[in-house]
């Protein structure tokens, strides 16, 4: 998964520069799509909420999408390896305007479990059972 950080890269660009940048991004995207590399991709709206605390009791406006760290969109890649995904991220045309791309492998299983190997077996055994309970509830 590619997470695009820094959604305000357009600041300070002229209309022409912006047009060129948008054209390049579209062409980049179409190129990847034709090669069958894209499983899904969306921009994210700037408005959002951040939920935290027990039972989600805190709901605040956010995140602050003005920051360079804010996630402005994502792309789920069908890549051969992390290196392949990094190479694709490096070809993203708006890197030169200050965005950064976080490249993360998508897993089938929660990595928290991998940190606790003693749990893996018990959790997989129990999960199916609990799913039935949940489904029946």
């Amino acid at each position: 998964m590619l997470l695009f950080r820094g959604p305000h890269w357009d600041r300070g660009l002229s209309t022409d520069e912006l047009q060129q940048a948008i054209d390049k991004v579209m062409a980049w995207f179409e190129g990847l799509n034709k090669r069958g590399k894209i499983k899904g991709a969306q921009p994210l709206g700037g408005q959002g909420r951040v939920v935290s605390g027990t039972d989600g009791r805190f709901v605040v406006d956010g995140p602050f999408t003005e920051t360079k760290e804010a996630v402005g969109g994502y792309l789920v890649l069908q890549a051969d390896s992390l290196d392949d995904a990094v190479e694709i991220a490096q070809s993203m045309p708006t890197l030169r305007y200050g965005i950064s791309v976080e490249v993360r492998p998508i897993l089938a299983e929660c990595p928290i479990l991998q940190r606790h190997p003693e749990l893996v077996r018990r959790a997989t055994d129990r999960t199916a059972e609990e799913l039935w309970v949940a489904a029946a509830a």
């Binding site: 998964m1 890197l95 976080e102 492998p105």
Partner: peptide, 21 residues
């Protein structure tokens, strides 16, 4: 999906900076 904890952050012109993260 869960995301793997290993990953990279790509930045800079032509993605010349690739940091662990």
């Amino acid at each position: 999906h869960p995301l793997g904890e290993e990953g990279k952050v790509v930045s800079g012109k032509q993605g010349r900076t690739v940091a662990d993260g």
